[in-house]
Amino acid sequence: MSTPNVPTVRLNNGVEIPQLGFGVFQVPDDQTAAAVTSALEAGYRSIDTAAIYGNETGVGRALAASGLARQDLFVTTKVWNADQGYDATLRAFDTSLAKLGLDHVDLYLIHWPTPARDRYPDTWRAIERLAAEGRIRAAGVSNFQPAHLKRLLDTGELVPAVNQIELHPGLQQAELRAFHAAHGIATEAWSPLAQGAVLDDPAVTAIARRTGKSPAQVVLRWHLQLGTIVIPKSVTPARIRENLDVLDFELTEQDMTAIASGDRELRTGPDPDQFN
Results as ranks from 00 to 15, higher is better:
Met1Val: 15
Thr3Gln: 11
Pro4Ile: 04
Thr8His: 08
Val9Arg: 13
Asn13Leu: 08
Ile17Thr: 10
Pro18Asp: 12
Pro18Leu: 06
Gln19Gly: 14
Phe22Thr: 02
Gln26Pro: 07
Gln26Leu: 12
Pro28Glu: 11
Asp29Thr: 12
Gln31Cys: 12
Gln31Lys: 14
Thr32Lys: 13
Thr32Asn: 15
Ala33Tyr: 15
Ala35Asn: 10
Ser38Met: 10
Ala39Val: 07
Thr49Arg: 07
Thr49Trp: 13
Thr49Tyr: 15
Ala50Thr: 13
Ala50Gln: 10
Ala51Trp: 13
Tyr53Ile: 11
Asn55Leu: 08
Thr57Leu: 15
Gly58Cys: 12
Gly58Arg: 13
Arg61Ile: 15
Ala62Val: 04
Ala62Ser: 02
Ala64Gln: 13
Ala64His: 14
Ser66Pro: 15
Ser66Arg: 11
Asp72Met: 05
Leu73Glu: 13
Thr76Glu: 12
Thr77Cys: 14
Thr77Leu: 14
Asn81Glu: 14
Ala82Gly: 09
Asp83Pro: 12
Gly85Ile: 09
Gly85Phe: 04
Tyr86Arg: 11
Tyr86Val: 08
Ala92Gln: 07
Thr95Tyr: 15
Asp103Ile: 04
Leu107Asn: 03
Leu109Asp: 08
Thr114Ser: 09
Pro115Gln: 12
Arg117Met: 04
Asp118Lys: 01
Pro121Ser: 01
Asp122Met: 03
Asp122Lys: 10
Ala131Met: 10
Gly134Asn: 05
Arg137Glu: 09
Ala138Arg: 02
Ala139Gln: 03
Ala139Cys: 06
Gly140Gln: 00
Val141Met: 01
Asn143Glu: 02
Asn143Ala: 06
Phe144Asn: 03
Pro146Phe: 00
Leu149Trp: 00
Arg151Asp: 07
Leu153Ile: 00
Asp154Asn: 03
Val162Pro: 02
Asn163Leu: 00
Gln164Val: 06
Glu166Lys: 10
Glu166Cys: 14
Leu167Val: 04
His168Met: 01
His168Trp: 00
Gln173Val: 02
Leu176Gln: 03
Leu176Lys: 12
Arg177Ile: 08
Ala178His: 15
His183Ser: 09
His183Asp: 06
His183Cys: 07
Glu188Gly: 06
Ala189Lys: 04
Trp190Gly: 14
Trp190Arg: 08
Ser191Thr: 13
Ser191Ala: 15
Gln195Phe: 15
Gly196Ala: 11
Ala197Pro: 07
Leu199Thr: 04
Pro202Gly: 01
Val204Ile: 13
Thr205Lys: 06
Ala206Asp: 09
Ala206Cys: 07
Arg209Trp: 02
Arg210Glu: 15
Gly212Ser: 09
Ser214Cys: 05
Gln217Ala: 11
Val218Lys: 05
Arg221Pro: 09
Leu224Cys: 07
Gln225Ser: 10
Ile229Glu: 09
Lys233Met: 05
Lys233Gly: 03
Pro237Gly: 14
Ala238Pro: 09
Ile240Pro: 02
Asp245Ala: 08
Glu250Asn: 14
Glu250Gly: 15
Glu253Leu: 05
Thr257His: 14
Ser261Asn: 10
Ser261Cys: 05
Arg264Asp: 00
Arg264Val: 00
Arg267Ile: 02
Thr268Pro: 10
Pro270Glu: 05
Asp271Asn: 07
Asn276Tyr: 13
